[in-house]
Design a protein around this nucleic acid. Structure first.
Lengths: 214, 214, 214, 214
DNA sequence: AATGAATGAGGGTTCATTCAT
DNA sequence: CATGAATGAACCCTCATTCAT
């Protein structure tokens, strides 16, 4: 055996468990975004993290668990983003709603890496109940807030719309535009996508988000 | 050998070849819908088609080719559906636009098997340029028709909207609602989804799809 | 890729499923005898059988199943051996009993490969209930026959011994001598071991197996 | 540095080192008995000893060494047991022989943990010359004593038996009964096994261990 | 054209061993 | 002395592909 080969190439790094897990999750996201979920292997993630093969099982027990926690990470990050946006926005319902729409096309949320991860997991959600469940939890909370805001605006403005349907429509619009941004990065920019979504808002609630001319 | 007798045999073989490929593609769709793309193996497809292992390589050369042709099949089927819908609809632009929206939530198009396949491929599209390209071709043509119709309606109604943005918005809405139907089959029905999409139309073009009250 | 390397080195052999399984079981026995159970890997068995890695899972689904069937094979072979010995022996109980003892040190049964396999599985039986169960079935039937014969001899000779205890003693003696033959092949030959076992018989049932002098 | 102060510290360290090794060996025995040799890992032993992973390599350099020393420990313990039994028994050869047989089914020696360890190592002895050697040393000494006693009894009683063969037979009987006790703990108790072994003695040397009736 | 036994590269996982702390 | 995070070789297993039949 080659004695030289046995020496570790890099200094043994010692990080806290939390840091290591975060590091590996980020490497997983990069790997999914670069190569796709089906080509993301333990080796590709480990290499992306510049760590050894066995380390993932050490911290996550299995590949499945790593992927689950990665999805959870992305979901939580998104959740945090719109929580923050609500905090930082004005107090009125229209202001809050606009803030939520804006978050969806924010640099942080709407970057290609993240979109790729969302659709990778959605694509597999059919065969993985766990994925569906993680997403469902997120969706429920988000939609509640969304339809709550819509309900208030509808009441104020005397609109005829069903608040829950509007909420579905709004989130569907974002998700659909994300797909276009992912598949079609040349023809559509996040800014344009935001414009389309805001246009939707203006059309549903013209008194609150009214255009200059119509 | 009898030259005359040979022809029909050759013809029959060729015909059967096409049938076999279609049979295998349908089996692939079922397998993806049942188990997911990542669990769909040559064996699972062959079993679904009640045929032997080696037959797929015989007809498609490789798994990659099978999946590509499966995607193409789904794409073509969708294309055919909206072509037909345009043919069967009234002549006016609003009628045609409504027909296109209706197609997206048609029993045939919007069945769970098909949705699962769409998202399975979209989820992998990042790592497979071929998938992206197949989808891109379809999208381009579809969006051209869509924005053409929107442009006409906008001209007629004197709306201020950008026709291409509206077209993006409309197709994004459908795709986003498909995702909700896929992930969340209990809370949302295709009929409701159609209602939401039609509501969008009414909001954008109130003169043409106007609601009773607003 | 190296095109030449892709060509199979040996002619594709096509054997019946039964033959292949038997071939693999025999390879497993050889591997256990040569290297031990803990060093017997899928690769070592496949190499011993001069076949490819994947073939074991093709025929046995898992390594566990292969090992179970290997144990069963050895157990059945032993069972067949003493069945045959009973058939070929004289009709009297002492003759049959002597035949059973003789089988245990027969060339076929008492070869090192087989002994190694027995003890390899016995050594693991603690942690593998399946192994214990397979052995238990064999033991029960064997001991019934053995104690039946002993009971008859005891009745005939008016001995005071407990037939079941004698049966335990006889089989224990064989197993213990097998261990010595396995660990200590230089100091003890199967012939000597047989002599020791037959001596035991003579001592228990002196009227039936009596020595010349005592 | 204070030379005087150093001594005790060194001494204490050495003492504690011995204790640690014993602690680890005992944990190894428990692990083998509980889960089997093949499932006994460095981790399982360390956990059983309630110590950390790396400690085994610290004290034993490698897993192989740990297992070797564990086998040696069991072998030595057995050796000590029959030494003691000889010491405590009467002076006559038959008394000593009976004492040796009794030891084999003593609570201490014939407990399931220990039997499991014996057979675990015997099962692997084929592939590990070291194991065989450790056992062989023990066997040689034991058998010498055993055949010495047998020789004396044979001389005294004018028996025709070969003392070495009787010694082989006796130890084989014990080992075989151990196997039955290990595999078949319900049907056979150590007391019954002792009875069977003592019955053997009575049959070989009827004048010295004679039954009441025969 | 069709079958399915066989191959073997590559996947996830385990675990003895190392080493910074 | 002792720890436990980290390594990486080697394990079992899957599966796309090949090919004799």
């Amino acid at each position: 055996m080659n004695e030289i080969a046995k020496r570790p190439r890099t200094k043994r790094r010692t990080a806290s468990k939390q840091e290591r897990k975060a590091q590996l999750i980020k490497a997983t996201i990069r790997s999914i975004a670069k190569h796709g979920l089906s080509v993301t292997t333990m080796a590709s993630v480990a290499k992306e993290a510049r760590l050894s093969q066995g380390i993932i099982n050490l911290h996550f027990q299995s590949k499945d668990r790593l992927l689950e926690e990665t999805l959870r990470y992305v979901v939580d990050e998104y959740r945090l983003a719109w929580f923050k946006a609500l905090d930082n926005s004005g107090e009125s319902a229209p202001e809050k709603l606009a803030a939520l729409v804006r978050v969806d096309f924010d640099k942080q949320v709407c970057q290609r890496n993240k979109l790729a991860v969302w659709f990778a997991f959605w694509g597999e959600s059919r065969s993985r109940p766990t994925y569906r469940q993680i997403c469902a939890e997120r969706d429920k909370e988000y939609r509640q807030v969304l339809s709550g805001l819509c309900a208030e605006i509808i009441r104020q403005g005397g609109y005829a719309s069903n608040p829950e349907h509007v909420a579905y429509g709004l989130s569907a619009m974002s998700e659909g535009l994300w797909l276009d941004l992912l598949l079609n990065p040349v023809d559509l920019t996040p800014e344009q996508a935001l414009g389309i979504s805001m246009g939707y808002l203006q059309d549903i609630f013209p008194q609150h988000f009214g255009r200059a001319t119509k």
